[in-house]
Amino acid sequence: MKKKRMLRLPCLLLALCLLLGGQALAAPEGATVWGYSEGLAQCELDGKWGFVDAQKKVVIPLKYNSVVSFSLGLAAVNLDGKLGVIRQDGAYLIQPEYGTLLPLDCGLYVVQKGTRWGVASILPFSDGQGGTTNLLYDLIYDSATITEQGGTRVLTLTRDGEVTKIPVFDLPRILVEKGVPSARFSLTRGKLPSFSDVSPRDWFAVWVDIAYNVGLTSGVGGNRYAPDQTLTVAEVLKLAATMESRYKDDSFHTSSSTGPYWYSGAVNYCLASGIIQSGTFTQQDYLRPATRREIAQIFAATSQAKHMKNINDLAKIKASVPDVKPGDAGADAIYSLYAKGVLTGVDSKLTFNPKGTVTRAEAAAIVARMARAEQRLALWGEYNPNVFAG
């Protein structure tokens, strides 16, 4: 069983090894490994910090003055006295150039450089002048603070005596209006599950955390997530319908499902949205395990997937996935999700296994990457967040 789990490991560790030039190295002798969070642990030697995986292999070099543990796939780091934010392969989401870095919700941070303050996003967006920016509020303010007023958290920006107050709950709407990627699936700081069957060392812990945080997955009862449980066709359609509804900002994901079965509303919504066609599945299909090919076809047909940008070369994907050939059933959908950094295969060779089933752990990885652009995986090159800015 342990060998099978390793073969199913999504290629985050592949990406980490590629980043390090192939083979990840063991933590150096004398290094101290601290507690695990989302599959990685802080590691320190002679005042320099980095991260190791569950096998104590270094995945983020020990070069930082200090680090904090990963949460929702993000970690703040201190490099030579300057603060930034990295993701789990060490790629910067916010460059280490700030003197102060205070987390807000929605992937936003209050930042300070010199005497100026502003608010930075982990994902860049269009600056309206043909370029990109990651500053939601420019570094022009004398101060930026987060306070609580009447039970509401408020971001207060002060400039030349003028005060601007923004309720933190209003930030998701502002991000959507600015065209910030993933704004429909905003992160909520501190909203983390504590499932008894998800260990901080597990490869899927980060994906379960993110998928739960953005409201796409939940437990099965009894404080369990059931990561090895197989997803049915109906469950996949419910996930796809929820994601489609959130992306379109309509009411399906907030309304009660109607119909003779718990999944009837999701099936009807997917039919109406064109995610599936009449006759794609029979009534007998909905409660059987979904195949990996089917899950790719379903998610690739969502509006979210259609509008996502490629971060991996499509031609190289077609030449590299060993068990999917052009013209195969679902091939275009499978290739598309590899190109967008959502699918990574079941092993280091990018094998897809189209007839295999999908576990709840794997489903969490897929929907987390679909929902959150900063978590999509570049298979052969360095992650570049600017590719998502429009």
Results as ranks from 00 to 15, higher is better:
residue 1 M to Y: 13
residue 1 M to W: 05
residue 10 P to C: 03
residue 14 L to T: 15
residue 14 L to K: 12
residue 18 L to Q: 14
residue 29 E to Y: 01
residue 30 G to T: 07
residue 33 V to E: 06
residue 37 S to E: 15
residue 39 G to E: 03
residue 39 G to R: 09
residue 41 A to M: 08
residue 42 Q to L: 11
residue 43 C to H: 01
residue 43 C to W: 01
residue 47 G to I: 00
residue 47 G to S: 04
residue 53 D to Q: 00
residue 53 D to Y: 09
residue 61 P to F: 07
residue 62 L to N: 00
residue 63 K to S: 05
residue 64 Y to N: 01
residue 76 A to L: 08
residue 79 L to R: 02
residue 82 K to L: 07
residue 88 Q to E: 13
residue 95 Q to W: 15
residue 96 P to H: 09
residue 96 P to R: 08
residue 100 T to F: 11
residue 101 L to C: 06
residue 105 D to E: 14
residue 109 Y to C: 13
residue 123 L to E: 10
residue 135 L to H: 12
residue 136 L to D: 09
residue 141 Y to D: 01
residue 142 D to H: 01
residue 143 S to Y: 01
residue 144 A to M: 06
residue 147 T to L: 03
residue 150 G to T: 01
residue 150 G to M: 04
residue 157 L to N: 01
residue 161 G to V: 07
residue 162 E to V: 15
residue 163 V to R: 14
residue 164 T to N: 08
residue 172 P to T: 14
residue 172 P to L: 05
residue 172 P to S: 09
residue 175 L to S: 07
residue 179 G to L: 13
residue 179 G to P: 12
residue 182 S to T: 14
residue 187 L to I: 12
residue 190 G to P: 11
residue 190 G to A: 13
residue 195 F to I: 12
residue 197 D to R: 03
residue 210 I to F: 11
residue 217 T to I: 12
residue 220 V to T: 14
residue 227 P to G: 00
residue 227 P to Y: 03
residue 231 L to R: 00
residue 231 L to S: 04
residue 232 T to K: 04
residue 233 V to C: 00
residue 240 A to G: 09
residue 241 A to R: 06
residue 245 S to E: 03
residue 245 S to F: 07
residue 248 K to T: 06
residue 253 H to V: 12
residue 255 S to P: 02
residue 255 S to M: 09
residue 256 S to N: 02
residue 256 S to A: 08
residue 256 S to W: 03
residue 257 S to C: 02
residue 260 P to R: 12
residue 262 W to C: 05
residue 266 A to W: 07
residue 268 N to G: 10
residue 269 Y to T: 10
residue 272 A to Y: 02
residue 275 I to C: 04
residue 277 Q to W: 01
residue 283 Q to F: 09
residue 294 E to K: 06
residue 295 I to G: 10
residue 297 Q to V: 12
residue 300 A to K: 03
residue 306 K to L: 08
residue 309 K to E: 12
residue 311 I to W: 06
residue 318 K to W: 10
residue 320 S to W: 04
residue 320 S to Y: 08
residue 320 S to C: 09
residue 325 K to E: 06
residue 326 P to T: 02
residue 340 K to H: 07
residue 351 T to P: 10
residue 358 V to H: 11
residue 359 T to W: 08
residue 371 A to M: 10
residue 377 L to V: 15
residue 378 A to R: 11
residue 378 A to F: 14
residue 379 L to S: 13
residue 380 W to F: 09
residue 387 V to S: 09
residue 388 F to M: 11
